[in-house]
């Protein structure tokens, strides 16, 4: 008999591992002089900063503390003045990056889905477009980012376009495969019950492709974020990618780490959102009612 899973114990392990990593990160390099053979140079806070510095920097970048290390008051207007003064504070940067990711994701998913359905259900169209799709798909999409920034400028549009171009193919291919592998029995059943072509698309093709589409959405949201960040690296006035570039110019590891950690949290939150949506829309896939 398998031992019953104990969520408490799993969580304890996870917390322990977290604490280990943070401790090594925070104090590991202090041992460098005494134990040089054990502690690699890479642990140098100059490169990877350390948790306390990162937290301090987080407070400064988010206008909660001034650059002198004093907490900005809410009521005395210090916080507000800081927010107004720094163009690319953490709040604005996160909001801008999230907004562009969202638009890149939504446009990429919807256009990839529509194109996938259209070509997946039409042998003629897929035959015509097949070589073009293979060719364009062979380009590493990120290589197009400089061209996109050149064409669309350093504003938000170029980030959305970069994000769109990395997302659209991913969703397209999954939808296409899904539309190709539809059980014709379902299509025939619907047709014999009097469904029109449009009704078949709506009530059979779309729902049976959903599982395939959702399989691509979790990577798609990460891709969308990657597209935006790369776009911001190339040229932007605001955004988390811009924040990273600024910190890099000042050789400020803690600033970069703040940005990276915010990106990580954003990524986790977005993936969780997709999971919730998937669990709801694909609830028929759960076999919990059996027996």
């Amino acid at each position: 008999m398998r031992r019953a899973r104990r969520p408490g114990r799993t969580l304890a392990w996870q917390v322990l591992i977290c604490l280990c990593i943070l401790s090594i990160w925070q104090w590991g390099y202090d041992l460098h002089d005494r134990l040089p053979w054990l502690v690699p140079d890479l642990l140098d806070p100059y490169f990877i900063s350390k948790p306390s510095d990162i937290f301090e920097h987080f407070l400064i970048l988010s206008c909660l503390k001034s650059k002198l290390g004093v907490f900005n008051g809410w009521f005395n207007g210090e916080f507000g003045r800081c927010m107004a003064r720094s163009e690319n504070n953490l709040w604005i940067a996160t909001a801008v990056t999230l907004k562009n990711t969202f638009f890149g994701f939504v446009t990429g998913v919807s256009s990839g889905f529509a194109a996938g359905l259209l070509l997946g259900r039409s042998d003629r169209l897929s035959a015509i477009f097949q070589p073009f799709i293979t060719a364009v798909n062979s380009i590493p999409r990120i290589a197009l980012a400089p061209i996109i920034v050149l064409a669309f400028g350093i504003g938000d549009t170029s980030k959305i376009v970069t994000s769109w171009i990395v997302v659209v193919f991913l969703v397209f291919f999954n939808t296409f495969e899904g539309a190709r592998s539809i059980d014709e029995g379902f299509v025939n059943a619907a047709r014999l019950l009097g469904a029109s072509e449009w009704q078949i698309t709506r009530t059979v093709v779309v729902p049976s492709t959903m599982a395939w589409v959702f399989a691509s959405l979790t990577p798609a949201i990460s891709f969308a974020l990657i597209g935006v960040i790369v776009g911001e690296f190339i040229g932007a006035e605001r955004g988390i990618g811009r924040l990273i570039i600024e910190s890099e110019a000042r050789a400020e590891a803690s600033g970069m780490m703040v940005a990276v950690i915010v990106l990580m949290l954003v990524g986790v939150a977005l993936s969780a959102l997709i999971w919730r949506l998937q669990a709801y829309l694909l609830r028929w896939q759960q076999h919990n009612l059996a027996e």
Binding site: D183, G185, N188, A189, T203, P207, S208, M210, L282, W284
Partner: peptide
């Protein structure tokens, strides 16, 4: 005209 298939073709998502 109604048709009943050899294997059931119930839509699993409904």
């Amino acid at each position: 005209v109604g048709y009943v298939f050899q294997r059931d073709t119930l839509f699993p998502w409904r």
